[in-house]
């Protein structure tokens, strides 16, 4: 009996937390349909589909969305490559400075984004580098590496080194071992790390403000539009659109990581 009751408490609090996490998203969805153009009030005075049309026809939104997607994709690829290399280097080996290396890799996410942002900004201004697509990518990849590294390193820690020895014994070279033995092992971590890195980059504004110049990523577009009448309801439409767009990849990725987890665990 007592166990049941406790169970119930746990279940209730779980659903309460999920409600807490999703209620604001529900509000975002609701106000995508409001008839108000600037100051929102509750309950909304009326509902309309107008903003979907306005958003659809807005070139700025499309440009910003496309820039954000390209930045996030590029930063994620760079991060996965660098993060995997670093994780492989640190794995199974003790070398001088190993601790320092792992600390340094984590530093960009451990230090607040504003520090990263303003540091990159100083480097950009001292070096006289013009703002471009790549200045944004560099900013994002810097913290995304840490995410990729963490995921891959955690996975590698749980991978038995004997697998690699077996592969070598069977005559596989380093590349073949990586391709056929290690890669399948770390694939879930790459998917999870890549997803998280992509999501962080896609929604990043703190660092981007300092490295974008007057380019508009989606969050920067949102930031200026949220305080502009007629554009404010549009931001809700766009946010909703992004959630809908990402829902399927999230579900698929969860499937993928779960399944492999199941077979190896």
């Amino acid at each position: 009996m007592r166990l049941r009751a406790k169970h119930l408490g746990l279940r209730l609090s779980t659903w309460a937390v999920l409600l807490f996490l999703h209620f604001p998203i529900f509000i975002v969805a609701l106000y995508a349909f409001t008839t108000e153009s600037s100051a929102f009030t509750f309950p909304p005075p009326g509902l309309t589909l107008e903003w979907f049309e306005v958003a659809w026809n807005n070139g700025d939104v499309r440009d910003a969305l496309s820039l954000s997607l390209r930045v996030a994709a590029t930063a994620t690829v760079i991060a996965l490559i660098l993060g995997t290399m670093a994780a492989a280097a640190v794995w199974r080996r003790k070398f001088f400075g190993r601790e320092a290396v792992s600390l340094f890799i984590v530093l960009p996410i451990a230090l607040p984004g504003i520090v990263t942002g303003i540091a990159l900004r100083s480097a950009i201004s001292i070096g006289g580098i013009p703002f471009s697509f790549w200045t944004i990518v560099i900013g994002h990849a810097t913290f995304a590496v840490a995410i990729a590294y963490n995921n891959v390193a955690a996975r590698m820690r749980r991978t038995s080194p004997s697998l690699l020895e077996a592969s070598a014994d069977l005559g596989a070279n380093g590349w073949q071992t990586f391709r056929h033995v290690l890669l399948p092992q770390i694939r879930p971590a790459l998917v999870a790390g890549g997803m998280l890195a992509f999501a962080l980059s896609f929604d990043e504004i703190i660092v981007t403000t300092f490295t974008a110049g007057n380019q508009q990523t989606l969050p920067i577009w949102m930031f200026t539009s949220l305080v502009r009448p007629r554009q404010r309801p549009m931001t809700n439409v766009v946010a909703l659109f992004v959630v809908a767009l990402t829902f399927i990849p999230i579900v698929l990725a969860t499937r993928l990581t779960r399944n492999t987890e199941g077979t190896t665990g």
Partner: peptide
């Protein structure tokens, strides 16, 4: 700080 946020505050 922002004109429209001020208007929000007057409204809500």
């Amino acid at each position: 700080h922002d004109a429209f946020i001020q208007l929000d505050d007057f409204a809500n």
